[in-house]
Amino acid sequence: DESNKPILLPNESQSFERSVQLLDQIPSYDTHKIAVLYVGEGQSNSELAILSNEHGSYRYTEFLTGLGRLIELKDCQPDKVYLGGLDVCGEDGQFTYCWHDDIMQAVFHIATLMPTKDVDKHRCDKKRHLGNDFVSIVYNDSGEDFKLGTIKGQFNFVHVIVTPLDYECNLVSLQCRKDMEGLVDTSVAKIVSDRNLPFVARQMALHANMASQVHHSRSNPTDIYPSKWIARLRHIKRLRQRICEEAAYSNPSLPLVHPPSHSKAPAQTPAEPTPGYEVGQRKRLISSVEDFTE
């Protein structure tokens, strides 16, 4: 099969070098950035008060330690540790928490760990991170309901609301924008112990962030949302095809390698009803078989 044979790379090609550099910018793992907010007593309706908090309760602090690993920003190499735009020179604080497994990295933009500057009256330095995160974990210690939209931002799609209760338990629920209701189930609340709260809140936030990324990708319907490693695979396959075309153009005697095509017509299947918005969006999480067989 010609399409699977190794090909020689061009010795000097600026377009090839640019493509390789672009490939280096696509990590081999999925990345997520999640905002974390603490809401104190009497702050449920005040964005400024929430963003001005420099610490929270003892249970909130224990919750943070379970979310991930504490890292010092100045020691991080952005090409190895995903920071979601946090500055490593102290502009966004000294520490944050991050978490990773074999296929993804997540960083938490924690408002109480970011510096509260006197010259920044409206807390814009914090909002440029927190307001651009799709998902926020809100530790609501106010005793009042927290409403979506209290923290203004164009991309605040989903809130994971943590409400501490007695007996070391917590109520965990989801809020989302109306255009996200087909992807996020907000109907079920959970009672979770303090011990298990970081794991549950983190998983709910990661799932909500993946759904938000799919939702946000609708602005470019021709580019369905893939995982990062599938995006790398697609980029490599496009690069291979372009090299083959350039080689055939410079030397017409060489065969032009095309991806294999299936001449056999697909079997006719009964027509199915058109899937609704929710089903269609969830299918976009699934990769096409052509990603692996071309």
Rank of each mutant, 00 (worst) to 15 (best):
1 D>M: 14
2 E>V: 08
4 N>K: 09
4 N>R: 13
6 P>H: 06
6 P>V: 07
7 I>L: 10
8 L>K: 06
8 L>R: 07
8 L>P: 15
9 L>I: 13
10 P>I: 13
11 N>A: 10
12 E>Y: 07
15 S>L: 12
16 F>C: 11
16 F>T: 09
17 E>N: 11
17 E>W: 12
19 S>G: 11
19 S>W: 15
20 V>L: 11
21 Q>N: 09
21 Q>A: 11
21 Q>F: 07
21 Q>Y: 10
23 L>T: 06
23 L>Y: 06
24 D>L: 03
25 Q>H: 07
25 Q>A: 10
26 I>Q: 07
29 Y>V: 08
29 Y>T: 05
30 D>K: 03
32 H>L: 08
32 H>G: 03
33 K>E: 15
34 I>W: 00
38 Y>Q: 00
38 Y>C: 00
39 V>R: 00
40 G>K: 03
40 G>S: 03
42 G>A: 04
42 G>L: 02
43 Q>L: 01
47 E>Y: 04
47 E>Q: 03
47 E>M: 03
48 L>F: 08
49 A>T: 03
49 A>P: 02
49 A>R: 04
50 I>L: 02
50 I>D: 02
50 I>F: 03
51 L>N: 03
51 L>Q: 02
52 S>N: 11
52 S>M: 06
55 H>D: 08
55 H>F: 15
56 G>W: 02
57 S>W: 01
57 S>Y: 01
58 Y>N: 05
60 Y>E: 00
61 T>H: 11
62 E>L: 04
62 E>F: 02
62 E>T: 05
62 E>M: 08
63 F>A: 00
64 L>N: 00
65 T>C: 13
66 G>E: 03
69 R>L: 06
69 R>F: 13
70 L>V: 10
70 L>I: 06
72 E>C: 11
74 K>S: 09
75 D>F: 11
76 C>P: 11
76 C>F: 10
76 C>R: 11
78 P>L: 14
79 D>I: 02
81 V>P: 14
81 V>D: 14
81 V>G: 11
84 G>Q: 11
84 G>S: 14
84 G>E: 14
85 G>M: 05
85 G>Y: 03
86 L>E: 14
86 L>P: 12
87 D>F: 02
87 D>H: 06
88 V>D: 09
90 G>R: 11
91 E>P: 05
91 E>W: 05
92 D>T: 09
93 G>R: 14
93 G>A: 13
94 Q>C: 12
96 T>W: 02
97 Y>Q: 04
98 C>W: 15
101 D>P: 02
103 I>R: 03
103 I>N: 13
105 Q>S: 11
105 Q>N: 06
106 A>Q: 04
106 A>K: 01
108 F>I: 01
110 I>T: 04
111 A>T: 03
111 A>M: 06
111 A>N: 03
112 T>N: 02
114 M>E: 04
114 M>D: 04
114 M>Y: 04
114 M>R: 04
115 P>L: 02
115 P>N: 05
116 T>Y: 07
116 T>W: 06
117 K>N: 10
117 K>P: 11
117 K>V: 12
119 V>P: 08
120 D>G: 14
120 D>A: 09
120 D>P: 07
122 H>D: 15
122 H>T: 14
123 R>E: 10
123 R>T: 14
124 C>G: 14
124 C>P: 10
125 D>M: 14
127 K>W: 09
129 H>G: 04
129 H>V: 10
130 L>Q: 04
131 G>Q: 15
132 N>L: 09
132 N>T: 15
133 D>T: 09
133 D>Q: 04
134 F>C: 02
135 V>P: 00
136 S>F: 06
138 V>N: 00
138 V>S: 01
140 N>L: 00
141 D>C: 01
142 S>I: 01
143 G>D: 03
144 E>F: 03
144 E>D: 09
146 F>N: 01
147 K>Y: 08
148 L>G: 15
149 G>V: 03
149 G>Q: 10
150 T>D: 03
150 T>R: 02
151 I>Q: 03
152 K>C: 10
153 G>M: 10
156 N>S: 09
156 N>Y: 03
157 F>P: 02
161 I>T: 04
162 V>N: 01
163 T>Y: 03
164 P>E: 00
164 P>H: 00
164 P>Q: 00
165 L>M: 09
165 L>G: 02
166 D>E: 11
167 Y>V: 03
167 Y>N: 04
167 Y>W: 06
168 E>L: 02
168 E>Q: 14
169 C>K: 02
171 L>W: 03
173 S>A: 08
174 L>V: 14
174 L>R: 01
174 L>G: 01
175 Q>M: 11
175 Q>A: 13
183 L>T: 04
183 L>F: 13
184 V>F: 08
184 V>N: 02
186 T>M: 06
186 T>W: 03
186 T>P: 05
187 S>C: 06
187 S>D: 08
190 K>E: 04
191 I>K: 01
191 I>D: 01
192 V>R: 01
193 S>A: 03
195 R>I: 07
198 P>V: 01
198 P>K: 00
199 F>P: 01
200 V>A: 02
200 V>M: 07
201 A>T: 10
201 A>H: 00
202 R>F: 04
202 R>S: 10
206 L>N: 00
209 N>K: 01
210 M>Q: 02
211 A>H: 12
211 A>I: 06
211 A>E: 01
212 S>V: 15
212 S>P: 01
213 Q>Y: 07
216 H>F: 15
217 S>T: 11
217 S>N: 06
218 R>Y: 07
224 I>K: 10
224 I>V: 11
225 Y>E: 14
225 Y>P: 10
225 Y>M: 13
227 S>L: 13
229 W>V: 05
229 W>T: 11
230 I>H: 06
230 I>V: 14
230 I>M: 06
231 A>D: 12
231 A>V: 06
232 R>K: 06
232 R>C: 06
232 R>L: 05
232 R>Q: 13
233 L>A: 10
233 L>V: 05
234 R>T: 07
234 R>I: 03
235 H>K: 06
236 I>A: 06
239 L>M: 15
240 R>M: 04
240 R>W: 07
240 R>K: 11
240 R>H: 11
243 I>H: 11
244 C>L: 10
245 E>H: 08
246 E>R: 06
246 E>W: 07
246 E>T: 06
246 E>N: 09
247 A>D: 12
249 Y>K: 06
249 Y>F: 09
250 S>G: 10
251 N>T: 12
253 S>I: 10
253 S>E: 14
254 L>Q: 15
256 L>S: 15
257 V>F: 12
258 H>Y: 10
259 P>D: 15
261 S>A: 11
261 S>G: 12
264 K>A: 14
264 K>F: 08
264 K>I: 10
265 A>I: 07
266 P>N: 13
266 P>R: 12
270 P>I: 10
271 A>Y: 08
273 P>S: 11
273 P>K: 10
273 P>G: 10
273 P>Y: 07
276 G>P: 13
276 G>Q: 13
276 G>A: 11
276 G>S: 06
277 Y>K: 15
279 V>T: 13
280 G>K: 07
283 K>Y: 08
284 R>L: 08
285 L>H: 11
285 L>Y: 08
286 I>V: 10
286 I>G: 13
288 S>K: 11
289 V>F: 08
289 V>Y: 11
289 V>Q: 13
294 E>F: 05
